[in-house]
Amino acid sequence: MLAQQLLNGLLLGATYALFALGFTLMFGVLRVVNLTYGFYFTAGAFLALWLTQAGAPLFLALPAAAIASGLIATLLDWLLLTRLRRAGADELASLMVTLGAVLALYAGMTAWLGPDIRRLPPGLIAAGALEAFGLRITLAQILILAACALLVGLLLWLMRGTRLGLAIRAMAERPDTAALMGIATARLAALVSFVSGALAGAGGVLIGLNFNAIHPYMGESMMLRGFVVIVVGGLGNIFGALVAGLLLGIIEVLTAGYISSGLKEAVAFALLVLVLWTRPAGLFGTTLARKA
């Protein structure tokens, strides 16, 4: 029983981690608390829904939805934040702009599509499940785990194994100096937005698959969890977000299983506050540049 709960928690945590990775990347490199981030999650889920309804197989719908979410993220970042970045505005201003934008985006989506919960077409993934050692894992869950592992691996390779990643880390450390060293910071900012948005979109598709419930405001409840994960992991810290995401999933599932499902969020947030009180920079409190 406990092993099964841990497995379910790990799965949930993997999607949290995936979502939070993009968020922490955006925060660490662009230094913006971008509240529109949750919208890319919703956008990814809806795009995958429409693509699969149109008959596209999942292995095409997932990357297509992720790429499209990334493009939306790049466009919104350019529309909303270019002006503020040029003026050197403080983080409050960017917080506020993205807050207004995300209110408009969710409301627009609800006005257009209605607040109903939609479901992915049946039979998208074979309904089978593997059973071994008394544990049960569905094919959908295996797919989620594999996709998360693949995307996290890709991100780590991009950040640590390529010159592009080096440039991104340089920009995270000191944007001015990076620009003087010949790094095209504006273009790089667009790229980081794209990667973050794509991660959020992929997270949306996978969570949509896991719970099979897609609605315009699904990104909003995810944003709160995203905050918990990136703060506990240390803002901008990719490794920290990964560990914290997995931890959060396991804690939520264990609380729901052994205490009360109504308390799972309260417990998660109580832990967040305790971490902040005792380790104000997060459990793995260093910056993206030094750690990623």
């Binding site: 506020m96 207004g100 934008a101 408009a104 409301a107 609800t110 006005a111």
Partner: peptide, 20 residues
């Protein structure tokens, strides 16, 4: 009707961009 919340958000965006 439905679009008013969209306008609400848009007003915030425009206000912050142009009246920081």
């Amino acid at each position: 009707a439905d679009v008013r919340l969209v306008m609400n958000g848009a007003v915030i965006v425009v206000a912050v961009l142009f009246l920081p």
